[in-house]
Design a protein around this nucleic acid. Sequence first.
DNA 1: CCTACTTCCTCCAGCGACTAGAGGAGCAAG
DNA 2: CTTGCTCCTCTAGTCGCTGGAGGAAGTAGG
Lengths: 140, 140
Amino acid sequence: MRPIAIGELSRRTAVKVTTIRFYEERGLLPTPERTEGNRRSYGEADVRRLRFIRHARELGFEIEDIQALLDLAGQPDRPCGEADAIARKHLADIDDRIARLTGLRQEVQAMVEQCSGGHVRECRIIEVLADHGECLHERH
Amino acid sequence: MRPIAIGELSRRTAVKVTTIRFYEERGLLPTPERTEGNRRSYGEADVRRLRFIRHARELGFEIEDIQALLDLAGQPDRPCGEADAIARKHLADIDDRIARLTGLRQEVQAMVEQCSGGHVRECRIIEVLADHGECLHERH
DNA sequence: CCTACTTCCTCCAGCGACTAGAGGAGCAAG
DNA sequence: CTTGCTCCTCTAGTCGCTGGAGGAAGTAGG
């Protein structure tokens, strides 16, 4: 099988060269073979693995979780409860973040709407920031 | 006015001691006076300033923006358009993040729902990750 | 074969906003 | 005077990359 250079791997997976080396260092990608001139030499399996990684990252999975998912992907006979748990945890995490941001959005929008465009002296934005008591919610 | 030690400032603002020192280094807090024994000595103005900072951080403003807002707060005669712009930019940023997370949520939830609880071999979670073509949206 | 250009190599530093720990000094109460 | 707390500085770690320096190797054209 034709060996693939890191630059080509980068092009084929849309992952930057530096990031590929970073993934290798973090153990997401196996240490590749080297050419005589000490260059990394990859195969099709690496392309697939790296695409998996990139896709999981795009979906917001953390590197540690991707590590676990990759390990599972290599053991087709195991029950998939663990993969399910990782994905559900991630989903819950996303929900948390959305909820938190939605709360913030409300506060910041209220601030912006109250700003009358006058001087800093009477600016609601500055006032609200200076006094938490002005907020809609006790906790952010 | 009674001097305030860093620990007390921390308690009164709910900002950790290490974080207070970090804010000082970053220029958000002025370099405080020191006692004979080289300890930082604060006043009520520092309490107000630090509360402002904490509140702005809770609302997700970046340190650079907080710097600008603090500068503005100190010049009550200036028009508040700049504060307004900072807040609006932040609001737009929050909206972006919510939109992005909502998209991710959809994808991850679809993945989780399709998992039948069998083996890794037929696990949809692993499959979807391995093949971007399985996704709801082209771009995440 | 020589040159120019590109790709690749390693190592190191930086981002943002902290957080944590080492190792030591000051201070207040019993 | 001793115990225990608070405080000091300095350094390094977190997460997921990203960029640059300085150099070696590969490739294409003349």
